[in-house]
Simulated scan of single mutants.
Amino acid sequence: NARKNHIDCLVCLGGNGTQKNAMRLHEAGLDVLTLPKTIDNDVAGTDITFGFDSSMAIATEAIDRLHTTASSHHRAIVCEIMGHKAGWLALGAGIAGGADVILLPEIPYDLEHVVAHLVERRHHNKRFSIIAVAEGAVPKNDKNRAERAQPQEEVEGLIQEPVASRVAREIQQAAGIEVRYTSLGHVQRGGSPTATDRLLSTRLGTKAGELLHDGVYNVMVGINGNDCVAVPLAEVAGHTKVVPPNHPWLKTAALVDTCLGDKIEFKE
């Protein structure tokens, strides 16, 4: 069809699945060019993806709103946030929204450590807590960790118990405090994009137009610092960008006394 319609290059916008399929098309003989579009911010070769800021803003507002009920009813509330197998959304929204606990796929959580943090807050007369949980969060030393890390709809084709539900039940049983949970689900994927995402996508789009004009194919247009750059698709496809152990956001969260699920040592 591409040859019949005289298509010089197919432009693909999307996340990791899109990047991998674009690479397959390239290997089959079709020139491609891709842009990183996903709320998960987990595409390799770019500092940020468009869609991420909008989704993070929605999750941050949700955490803000949960503070009202949590504080008035003296409860702990678990909020499940998307992100696939990476914790960027939960970490960013958790810090921005003032979550007291943030659980990420990159840091398997120790339930005893989390409970101790929540109990200590109560001892200091902080009668409520907000726990931001990434959908890929898994407990430490869990034999089923690999399976639990899969998004709900991908495990044996069945809808599994929400991660937030499991975490809420575990905390309530271990700490003896009243816990509620909510899962934002696909609410995070829609609505009006932020100005930051509109600017980012326009910059990437115009850079893609320039590359197409110059005949530069089989690359992804990414962001490196303040620059739009062409990244070889081979360096992107099949790679996932997760939160590194020394990322500044993790250090920031720790410095404002946010529990990250386990004890963490930051190397200088």
Rank of each mutant, 00 (worst) to 15 (best):
243 V>H: 06
31 D>Q: 15
262 D>H: 07
147 E>P: 00
82 M>W: 04
204 L>C: 10
60 T>W: 05
217 Y>A: 12
258 T>L: 05
107 I>A: 04
49 T>A: 13
182 T>A: 12
158 L>I: 14
175 A>N: 10
48 I>W: 08
261 G>I: 03
171 I>W: 00
166 R>S: 08
186 H>L: 12
11 V>K: 06
226 N>D: 12
222 G>K: 07
73 H>I: 00
149 A>F: 00
263 K>E: 10
230 A>M: 03
3 R>T: 13
12 C>T: 09
171 I>S: 07
71 S>T: 14
82 M>P: 06
49 T>D: 03
206 T>K: 14
158 L>T: 13
129 S>C: 03
65 R>D: 02
136 G>E: 02
106 E>Y: 09
189 R>W: 09
120 E>H: 14
152 Q>G: 15
254 A>S: 14
253 A>M: 09
20 K>R: 14
136 G>F: 02
178 E>Y: 05
36 P>K: 06
249 W>T: 06
245 P>F: 10
133 V>C: 01
175 A>L: 05
249 W>Y: 11
79 C>W: 00
256 V>H: 10
224 N>Y: 06
55 S>K: 05
13 L>T: 11
162 P>M: 06
131 I>T: 03
226 N>Y: 07
178 E>M: 12
94 G>Q: 01
91 L>N: 01
103 L>Y: 01
53 D>T: 08
183 S>D: 01
231 V>Y: 05
87 G>R: 00
152 Q>N: 12
202 T>H: 08
94 G>I: 06
79 C>Q: 04
191 G>N: 08
19 Q>A: 12
23 M>I: 07
126 K>T: 11
